[in-house]
Design a protein around this nucleic acid. Structure first.
Lengths: 183, 183
DNA sequence: TCTGAATATAGGACAAGTCCTATATCACGT
DNA sequence: ACGTGATATAGGACTTGTCCTATATTCAGA
């Protein structure tokens, strides 16, 4: 249940509404933590019921009312406890690798197509991250710790995207050679 | 629901029991597709109910009976359809990045500790993958396509683990420098 | 003028996965 | 002798996330 922690993390920086949180996720955190809009609001409700955050309704003339969420002390404690808790081992699912693992029946040509598809999404991702990265403060060494860490997550995405592309290219050429030599 | 496809993929290679599938996942596929034992059996039941696989009970004297699952034609079609379907964009969650993103309140020293923890799990993973990789056939260029692809998923894991370590080291030294210069 | 996107929140139905427990027997080590 | 792990399957309870729909208004563009 880490969406809760992400929500607490954002609200700790600044009180926010559910809508703003959605924006924050889809811009800053999209590449490592997709957040479903519906789930977001449900998480906020639950966090409030659990006394972690508090909401005040901000009436608006033309738009629907906004509910501004503020972090409460128990919420801050939960956030800190999460940050300090031991890292659990990564158990991530990689749908692409799953597919590749079983893709032999597509034949060499089919697999190469699959690799090329994957390659172009990786390039696309890298381009997106590059442009986000370009809009970061140039004086990183003088930035706050928070800014450095947020930039760091971007760098992580870039590093992995580059690694993915390199790996794909190697595998591709290996398969192509094999096909060649099998003539 | 990709566990189903993974199950079909394994059963396509060779008829298997749920128990054997569990083994297959935890040895070959553990690093990209963790499979819960309970979920595995449920998936098998459902696949059989849907006419994708067929099971025959193999009675055993001392051990509990085994149910051997065989791929049926509709199952093979489902598998091929999945392999040929367009790749959906990756929406993976990265709990570590989420934590790092909000970790500023731990302070530079605390963050460095976090990075070090992460680094040692990455090194551990890399070591595991390296030893798996070492037991692969040396004549890779002569291997079957299936073997090449399966080896490829291992290589992917290694490439990403190395990228992770490099990135962690860079971030770590950047934070350390910053701390240094802030004295 | 009409359509769609943005602003803002919310619920229902469902899918998928996790964790724990149950059952039963045998082999192996201490 | 005694517990632990391997073999083998299965269900219950629960959590989390996804997808779709609803509601209500305003503004920009075709």
């Amino acid at each position: 249940m880490s969406l809760l922690h992400a929500v607490l993390g954002f609200v700790a920086i600044q009180p926010m509404t559910g809508y703003e949180l959605g924006k924050a996720f889809s811009t800053t955190a999209a590449h490592f933590w997709p957040a479903d809009q519906s789930q977001l609001y449900r998480t906020l409700h639950r966090a409030e019921a659990d006394g972690l955050v508090e909401s005040t309704t901000v009436e608006q003339a033309t738009r629907p009312d906004r509910r501004l969420y503020t972090l409460l002390e128990p919420g801050r404690e939960a956030l800190e406890a999460w940050l300090a808790s031991p890292l659990e081992p990564d158990t991530s699912r990689e749908p692409f690798l799953l597919r590749l693992f079983f893709a032999a029946s597509l034949g060499t040509a089919g697999v190469i197509e699959l690799l090329d598809q994957r390659r172009s999404s990786a390039v696309e991702l890298l381009t997106t991250l590059d442009s986000l990265s370009a809009s970061a403060p140039p004086q990183l060494s003088k930035a706050t710790l928070a800014a450095q860490l947020q930039y760091g997550t971007l760098e992580s995405g870039r590093a992995h995207a580059r690694a993915e592309i390199t790996w794909l290219d190697e595998l591709r050429s290996q398969l192509a050679d094999h096909k060649e030599s099998a003539r």
